[in-house]
Design a protein around this nucleic acid. Structure first.
Length: 505
RNA sequence: GCGCCUCUAGCUCAAUGGCAGAGCAACGGACUCUUAAUCCGCAGGUUCCGGGUUCAAGUCCCGGGGGGCGCACCA
């Protein structure tokens, strides 16, 4: 049984050593003593010498051991790849020019009992990479960089919002009524009150209640849960930024979004011009603005609008491959047509705005057109990055919209919203004109890290449980557990881009 | 849910239906300046599982499982 110490005093990180003694000449000895710690990633024992690459979170530095200088040299040269080591000694540069810590004393901090991946090719097996993410992170520097970039992205996002005067808040994750989006929830049971509760599908309604309470600029960065499918762009739990700003409308929010996203690109990547999946992508503000109607018309050549007769819209939607449902109105048909024909073709950032009111139950009606809502989605690289609008502030109209949702639910729409009387009551206390936004942080991190799959930007993405050998599937009932929307028929989820709302149509 | 692809040593990968192999890692050894060190030696397998066809199956067929991609779904 190996015993390892309870602590180790580092004087420097590997990166600091490399940086600080960068001027040391080959063969030169600095006379300075350091203590470093990390994992042995490569080992090159050579007779009475030994070289090892020690990596920590800051970088890597070579350990240089010599028989007669290094304590317990024989044990040192038996170190295996993956072992954690703390070492102290003089900073030197070897004759061959590699900056090194000439190890005088060292201690094993942890033993790697499982073999490490291929030292040159790393670990590529997708299942290993994500079921054992710790292995992936050590073996594949790109995986570390991606998660680190995400951390910086979220950090800078917070800092920028704080600097703009937004107050960061936390709202409940357990909701008595799942609201604020159009999605199936995960359900669970709260014993003390003998009631069903739901993991939130959006924080929207609570955040707007905080605006009613006087928080004029609020935001929350947090996890949302949607009981729908998985795909390269969907994980059942994902992270969003949601924010609300009193006295603002959706045009103000557009400016906020383009400034925030392009600013974050500068902060984190140093440029607003990036490459995503081999294609150049320019996030420089200002972004193009175009109405949903004109984009669909431009893409399809059809003369469409929310006023196009339903029969025509239905035909065009069917022609585009949409499986039309009878209950859909013109707004829903137009939205389907847009998503089928146009959204995926939009590459550089564009604010797609003025959605049908029919599909936007929490958005305020358009000031110039009662059939539209003041809603937009920022679309980048063919995907929604978020969802935003001038918030619906009128309690009577909100109640009416909720009731339309209930009608849709009764008609079979399992994702339609329920009436949230607490929320309507809050609106009766007065919600000032407010602009709101939901922004998918995973999707943004995908863009910034050039990731094709959402799991790359999530530390531990959802995976199907591993089955014991020979367990097979036959008898068990692991499948539909129940609670609310089990079975989730398809994957897909919705867009994590933001809050998803829709009407009931 | 449907279609296509895939699963071989710890890792990364080979093997026309004909003796299951290599590199790295591991293990033993050599080496006082290595850089994916090099060299010598040794060991390593339920070829995802279960059936079938065949003189012979990692390879072909059927069923199941894991994984990937696409579609569908996901307003």
């Amino acid at each position: 049984m190996t015993t390892v110490p309870y602590r180790f005093d580092q004087t420097s990180s590997a990166g600091e050593v490399v940086e600080r003694w960068s001027g040391l000449a080959a063969g030169e000895e600095s006379g300075d003593q350091v203590s470093v710690a990390g994992r042995v990633m490569l080992a090159r024992p050579q007779g009475k010498l030994g070289f090892a690459e020690l990596r920590d979170s800051s970088g890597a530095v070579q350990l240089f051991a010599l028989d007669g200088v290094t304590r317990d040299f024989d044990a040192f040269r038996r170190l295996r790849l993956g072992d954690w080591v703390g070492a102290s000694g003089e900073v030197v540069r070897t004759r061959r020019g590699e900056l090194s810590v000439k190890v005088a004393d060292w201690v094993l901090l942890a033993e790697a009992r499982r073999p490490f991946g291929d030292k040159w090719r790393g670990v590529t097996d997708v299942e290993t990479r994500f079921r054992q993410r710790e292995v992936d992170l050590w073996a594949n520097p790109e995986s570390r960089r991606t998660l680190l970039m995400r951390s910086q992205l979220v950090r800078r996002m917070r800092e920028r919002l704080w600097d703009m005067g937004f107050v960061e808040v936390e709202t409940p994750i357990l909701h008595p009524i799942p609201g604020g989006a159009h999605a199936r929830p995960f359900a669970t049971r709260f014993r003390a009150l003998d009631m069903d509760v739901y993991l939130r599908i959006a924080p929207e309604l609570y955040l707007k209640r905080l605006v009613v309470g006087g928080f004029e600029k609020v935001f929350e960065i947090g996890r949302l849960f949607r009981n729908e499918g998985m795909s390269p762009r969907h994980n059942p739990e994902f992270t969003t930024l949601e924010l609300y700003q009193a006295y603002a409308d959706y045009h103000d929010v557009m400016v906020l979004v383009e400034d925030l996203v392009s600013g974050l690109a500068l902060d984190v990547l140093g440029s607003t011009s990036l490459t995503y999946q081999g294609r150049p992508l320019d996030l420089t503000a200002p972004w193009r603005r175009a109405t949903l109607t004109e984009l669909v018309a431009g893409q399809t050549g059809l003369d469409v609008s929310v006023r196009t007769p339903r029969e025509e819209l239905e035909k065009w939607a069917r022609d585009a491959g949409v499986e039309v449902e009878r209950s859909w109105g013109p707004g829903k048909l137009l939205l389907e047509l847009y998503e089928k024909t146009t959204e995926g073709e939009l590459w550089d950032p564009v604010f797609v705005y003025d959605y049908p009111k029919e599909v936007s139950p929490l958005a305020r009606a358009h000031r110039d057109d009662p059939l539209l809502a003041e809603r937009f989605e920022p679309v980048v690289a063919g995907r929604e990055l978020g969802n935003a609008f001038s918030e619906l502030v009128d309690p009577d109209e909100q109640l009416a919209r909720f009731e339309e949702q209930v009608a849709a639910r009764d008609a079979g729409d399992e994702e339609a919203m329920a009436v949230d009387t607490d929320y309507v009551r809050a609106l009766e206390h007065g919600l000032p004109p407010t602009g709101g936004l939901g922004l998918g942080i995973d999707r943004l991190a995908m863009l910034f890290s050039d990731a094709a799959h959402i799991r790359e930007v999530i530390s531990f993405p959802m995976m199907r449980p591993e089955r014991a050998e020979g367990e097979g599937r036959g008898g068990g009932e692991v499948g539909d557990d129940g609670e609310v929307g089990d079975d989730g028929e398809g994957p897909g989820g919705d867009r994590e881009g933001g809050r998803r709302r829709g009407p009931g149509g």
